[in-house]
């Protein structure tokens, strides 16, 4: 499959104008666990042109119940494992990996992206990223997530908008500290809300 064949197929599926927007977009996926691994795959399938993948962690056996990695990838850095997976999905996606812990001190890694997708695990890291990006890069859009753990109904996963550029997906309540664990479908629902929000923003649809 050549890049040209892939791009042509997406143009036919999505329309040339929309595909041009997707292809020109740059999104940073911050955290490559249950949320980030699913978001990255959805965005690559849509033909988003450039993805920054940021995570310091390696694939381990406890990730396989919900994260988009394989047994053959155990022990790999998630950044490299996801880059490998995306290469098998989309030949057009320019994937840039950063195998680091994202903190207030290195938010400049996000400088060239249009949209930041917050996919961290810890509540404090989520708040750090949302506040840090809002302060330092007020022009960027943020798709964050809060509340997708446990086996609660899927119908409470929603997308809310705060201010002009911050979107928060999830039920806002279910904390993994209370529920004990996360399951693939509910995490994927939340990741799907985030990825859908991002594609809508790229398409110029800003309402929820």
């Amino acid at each position: 499959m050549t890049k040209e064949e892939w791009y042509k197929a997406l143009e036919i599926r999505h329309g040339a104008d929309l595909q041009q927007k997707f292809s020109s977009a740059c999104v940073a996926v911050c955290g490559l666990g249950g949320l980030g691994s699913n978001v990255a795959i959805s965005l690559a399938r849509a033909g988003v042109g450039k993805l920054h993948l940021i995570d310091f962690d390696r694939v381990d056996v406890f990730n396989l119940n919900r994260q988009q990695y394989k047994i053959s990838q155990l022990g790999m850095h998630k950044t490299e494992a996801m880059k490998q997976n995306l290469a098998e999905i989309s030949p057009c996606c320019n994937v840039i990996t950063h195998t680091v812990k994202l903190t207030e001190g290195n938010l400049s890694l996000l400088a060239d992206c249009d949209i930041v997708c917050e996919c961290f695990d810890s509540a404090e890291c989520k708040a750090m990223l949302v506040n840090g990006v809002s302060e330092r890069y007020p022009e960027k859009y943020i798709a964050a997530a809060s509340g997708m753990s446990g086996l609660h109904t899927g119908n409470t996963i929603q997308t809310k908008k705060l201010g002009k550029r911050l979107y928060i997906c999830g039920d806002g309540m279910s904390d993994v500290a209370d529920d004990g664990t996360l399951f693939a479908p509910r995490v994927m629902l939340c990741a799907a809300h985030q990825a859908n929000t991002i594609l809508r923003i790229i398409a110029g649809k800003f309402e929820v």
């Binding site: 949320l35 980030g36 509540a123 404090e124 279910s174 904390d175 996360l182 995490v187």
Partner: peptide, 10 residues
Amino acid sequence: IEIVSFVGGG
């Protein structure tokens, strides 16, 4: 004022 209090999980 809208206050979001993040919960863990991802």
